[in-house]
Design a protein around this nucleic acid. Structure first.
Lengths: 242, 242
DNA sequence: TATTAATGTCTATTTTTTAGACAATGATTT
DNA sequence: AAATCATTGTCTAAAAAATAGACATTAATA
């Protein structure tokens, strides 16, 4: 990130809860920072003066995942009093002055209280090519169930994002964003079970999904298992997304 | 408002859609500004450096209504590119320099692009004592159905707020915030009909509401009408609000 | 060819929602 | 004092939706 404070809106940030799905588990994209201790954060960034906030969020996401077209939606603003990124501020204080980074500007930037707009994204984890952002030691998919303690209110951000996801998964049929192009009914059901953390009865789940009229049935897939081969399905492209 | 830009977060505002209910109609609190043309806006303001954004919203609301305890919830961030309050900026440009107001600071403040956090409130319209804010020519309850064109995206803000209200009215049982302390089943039904803009069958509406187990039945009220007197109800105080 | 485990779908049951009906009641009229 | 009238409270019937149970089908293996 070339830091140019005049091009950014001060005291306002964006943080993204990026959900993925793999082998029956919901994953969240988390960065580990390049510091002495292990510090974890959600992917985040700032809003350029001329950007729509949705564009900012997409840009922040593309930097980390390489994805351009992503399901991404704001879900909540985090604005408690005195909400500051003390750990990052600390990091800059400890930097040597001659490190080539404009230390003073950064320090001034991060010394302020920030309000953050929370976005959540649903991505096909196989389409993502992870890219470290500046100051990231690594960026990885971590299990939603066992996230480490993160910076500031980032754990709470995940909680609220999951709540929003649960509310919208049924209503808006957005779950397909987490799956590959084609999938079996069982995979879809396992996704739902992972999101809601509870089992669904197989027969009625299938009926409900088919009755939605948004799935296109494709060929059977022969998995090699000693049983009836399941159909593959695809989300119908001709559905209006609203 | 004593303007002190250093105490406020720049480029970030709060706008409130305040819903009331009177005689079968949903009302919205709207200010008319003290300008040559009629300019209408939602109640809004800014966030003090040390404030939780929820506090800011409550403060903004109390200034206009005198109410301290109000149902108030953020529902969406409005952050399109180049979102500026040109009309207010224009107003300051036309002000005489010696008007006692720090014209230059205001001009600088409003020349920037703003991101706004949308809140909606539900109030008992009878408890409100309206107070003009600075620059308001008047502030009034206007019919939701026939709002005038407002500044910037304020009409869109109302649309989204109404959508949020509809989503939560059932689920969260927040409708009682719009009614007086006690009310009849018919009044409650008429409120629902106003919010959803459609009729509900009387028998099933009553059953559904009573089955929620949140209403306390009080005495009958003798209205003087030549028919059976309805019971009064009150929202049970011992319900957890989450 | 029999066995096994998962799949696709059907029917039965239960629950919830919606529709229809009617007695009860408070004031007014006769 | 009795009849009328409009609204209220609640009951039952019908329809729809959700849940549970059952079973034939099928792809690989024994």
């Amino acid at each position: 990130m070339e830091f140019n404070e005049e091009k950014l809106i001060p005291q306002l940030s964006i943080d993204c809860v990026v959900f993925g799905y793999k082998e029956g588990r919901i994953k969240v994209l988390v960065s580990r920072l390049n510091l002495s201790e292990d510090i974890y954060t959600l992917p985040g960034g700032f809003i350029r003066q001329e950007e729509h906030i949705d564009e900012s969020a997409h840009r922040i996401l593309e930097e980390r995942t390489g994805l351009k077209e992503v399901f991404l939606e704001q879900y909540r603003v985090f604005g408690v009093a005195n909400r500051k990124n003390d750990i990052i501020l600390d990091m800059f204080e400890k930097l040597p002055t001659e490190s080539g980074i404009n230390k003073e500007n950064w320090q001034n930037w991060f010394s302020k209280r920030f309000v953050s707009v929370g976005y959540y994204a649903l991505v096909d984890i196989n389409k993502v090519s992870l890219r470290k952002s500046e100051f990231d030691a690594e960026i990885n998919w971590l299990d939603l169930e066992s996230l480490p303690q993160m910076i500031m209110d980032h754990n709470e951000m995940v909680d609220f994002a999951l709540e929003s996801l649960r509310e919208k998964l049924d209503e808006k049929l957005i779950g397909f964003n987490l799956l590959p192009e084609t999938f079996t009914m069982r995979q879809l059901q396992e996704l739902y079970e992972a999101v809601y953390d509870r089992p669904f009865p197989r027969n009625n789940f299938q009926k409900k999904m088919l009755d939605l009229n948004v799935l296109e049935r494709l060929d059977k897939v022969y998995t090699g298992a000693a049983n009836k081969a399941p159909y593959l399905y695809r989300f119908r492209k001709d559905i209006k997304s609203s």
